[in-house]
Design a protein around this nucleic acid. Sequence first.
DNA 1: TCTGGGGTCCTAGGACCC
DNA 2: TCTGGGGTCCTAGGACCC
Length: 423
Amino acid sequence: MPPAFAIVDCNNFYVSCERVFNPGLAGKPVVVLSNNDGCVVARSNEAKALGIKMGVPVFQINSLIKTHKVQAFSSNYALYADMSQRIMNTLSGFTPDIEIYSIDEAFLDLSQFKQYDLTDYGHKIRSTIKQWTGIPVSIGIAETKTLAKIANKIAKKSVKAEGVLNLTASPYLNRALEITDVGDVWGIGRSYSSFLKKYGIHNALQLRDADDKFIKKKMGITGIRLLKELRGIPCYALEQFPSPKKGITVSRTFKNSIESLDDLKEAVAAYVSLGAEKLRKKHSVAGVLMVFLMTNRFRKENYYVNIKTIKLSVATSDTSELIRYAHEGLKAVYRKGYLYKKAGVMFKHLNPENQIQANLFNYTDFKRSKKLMQALDNVNKKMGSDTLKYAATGLTTNQRWKTVFKRRSPSYTTNWDQIVKVS
DNA sequence: TCTGGGGTCCTAGGACCC
DNA sequence: TCTGGGGTCCTAGGACCC
């Protein structure tokens, strides 16, 4: 018997989160902005209807925002992460076979429920999530992940589907593929989309029935997998236990360009602190550290990126040690006179911390560092994430590198001071 | 001038995802 | 003037080895 995958996708997730705590936003055009309030990263249906595209810079739609009274919010990741966790917990109550695919999406394996009506089951999941978390979701069900994604997209738009479309053993399958633009297929981006259309492949049905050799030649092994998935042969399994990450990156764009090395040193120290904390949360250490600087990528004439890779003699997750290395790297990439727009650090060659090859010289240091880092993490966990920090990240209030969030909504679920008061 | 065959490992770049 | 952040996989090509 063929399997049944479901993809549960939150509608306009960040916007929906804002609406849960501010019901007055219902029915109005709402957008959520990226860091520094730079771009649009989430849109309500009303905002989409106004023609506001995903990823547009805010300065290009300022007049639109004004005339249509579009509500614009800075992103509030703590809120969205918290809401995401509630949704995933709710989903876990429906099946243990769940893959958390992103902050607002999860795949479920519903094969064991095939004796029931999967469409009904989908509706039950959908209404429960709405009731328990306030977030509207769409659900697509099919025999492969790729087909489930297609079902989901249609479920989101179709009034008749009411948020759930089941394409398993469905007479509607071919029609569903036919009305799906090839560029909307999971795994087909901008470049493949325009290429395929040039060869007369405009929709998912045409792609499914395309010539294997042609697709293999042009798209490699991933193309063949895609064809199989469209034909109902699963190539992608449910990944309940994600494999460990290969790297951790922390980078930020500056609101205004930065020239001074001292400012960049503060920024880089702050990014290392964040990254090292993530590292320790996973009980990992990094063997390679990379530091990079870049100028404004929209000024093509002067755009340049500089990256320095540093191999650590002993892998570590110690913040102060990593800051030292990162500052070393920063000096190597820094050139006076450039206007920097973005900086970042990357940790690579991650390994479990218990696999550090501790030699006699560093063993006591290692134990001391571990204790110190545990103390640091504990304080920040209890008292708020920025309670204890390294002086290298800057103590002044005038931090030119700091990300700006001017339109942030209150932290409803994560900060006691800002919790909703009922009076 | 003629000049093998195969393997591994690493990296950079391209394509994609959210 | 103002333009986000963090990932994955695949492939081709170079370095190196026997």
